[in-house]
Design a binder for these strands. Structure first.
Lengths: 215, 215
DNA sequence: AGTAACACGTGAAGC
DNA sequence: TGCTTCACGTGTTAC
């Protein structure tokens, strides 16, 4: 534990100019072009220590940010800040993994019905309506499933005229009626492909990849 | 970017013992009790630089751990490691918050049915069975809801003899028949209190508190 | 007192 | 070559 020492740089602690030679921030305003060996050395040293100070400030700035991002990090020394960060990051990753697992197949005792198989079928409705297609898809329910379906539909030409959806036992069954796909089979193909993506998308695929979560 | 310099401490870089006076790890095995000013000074300096080295090792050890915990941190200099950590931690927190929000009320377009109000009602079954109580509770579905109910039931005296559960539209309706609560109304009161907790529990309350998530 | 944490400047090494 | 990053030892401050 630490109570933020006062010797922490309040601002930019500017050069004290205590060198033997006149040295300023621009590192060489000397009019004598042929600088002496000693002078160049001092200038280089100054430059060096300056950039080192900048580096320290960069690092300490990130420490400061880190302290604001995660709780309970203020008043901790650097080593503890890092250790606590590691701990909390692990916890966060575990949390995400757990939530994901919970959303994927619900609680174990919640699986009263057999898992079922993901299915997708398209069907041309010959009847009163012209060019009406009925799409039936069933898959595991997940947050964002309907959003994904909406997005998929907006990527094809037709428009949704009716929908029936039911979620039970952690699975989702959806029947969609789409009109105006076009005459050829291109519309059907595109629709099938788009909906296939929705069905096949793993839950939180992005999260899993981004943070190297298990499974 | 950085390609892991070779001057990284391979192992414990032990004292080189280059001082004017014999100095070892125990910092003073000198037989001459009245240590000279100079000697104590050197010993103190050694001690100081040693503890500083230990501090550095502590910090660098945590950097190493951090590099293994989060992806894409290897081959990054310290400042970038911290910056990337900040970025990824923010992303993780956002992810948890999003998932939580998604699980809390589903996607906005998923709310085709009115949200409904959380309800809990207990009812004494007068009939063939002795001391049978029917509890009906409906609330928003969430991961762990059934676990919570199970826990709640295990905390009261009676035992579950029958249950009906249905989840639709992100909401969960549950009817539980409990037997052996006891004759008085204490059993009913306890059961109601336990189930009330289940209904009122916010989703992922723990996560939210632990990581200071918004809302 | 003595310990712990920090900033600083410097030499070394890699690109 | 210069620029960057690091480890190191030291001076300083706080408890």
């Amino acid at each position: 534990m630490l109570s933020i020492p006062s010797y922490y740089p309040k601002q930019i602690s500017f050069p004290k100019g205590q060198g033997v030679f006149p040295v300023n921030t621009i590192y060489s305003k000397s009019f004598f072009k042929p600088k002496s060996k000693a002078e160049t050395k001092v200038i280089a040293a100054k430059k060096h220590s300056d950039s080192e100070r900048r580096r320290r400030m960069r690092i300490n700035g990130q420490y400061a940010t880190l302290r604001t991002v995660l709780p309970n990090l203020i008043k901790m020394d650097k080593a503890s800040v890092l250790a606590e960060t590691v701990r909390q990051v692990r916890e966060l990753k575990r949390a995400v993994a757990e939530v994901e697992a919970a959303c994927r197949h619900g609680d174990s005792d919640e699986c009263v019905l057999p898992g079922g198989v993901d299915k997708l079928s398209l069907e041309q409705c010959d009847g009163e309506q012209e060019g009406l297609v009925k799409a039936t898809l069933s898959c595991g329910d997940r947050p964002g499933l309907i959003s994904d379906m909406t997005r998929a539909l907006s990527s094809v030409k037709g428009r949704l005229v009716r929908a029936e959806m039911v979620i039970v036992g952690g699975r989702s069954k959806n029947v969609l009626w789409i009109q105006g796909l076009g005459d050829g089979k291109e519309g059907m193909v595109a629709l099938r492909r788009a909906l296939k993506v929705v069905i096949d998308r793993p839950i939180f695929a992005g999260l899993r990849k981004r943070f190297h979560l298990p499974q």
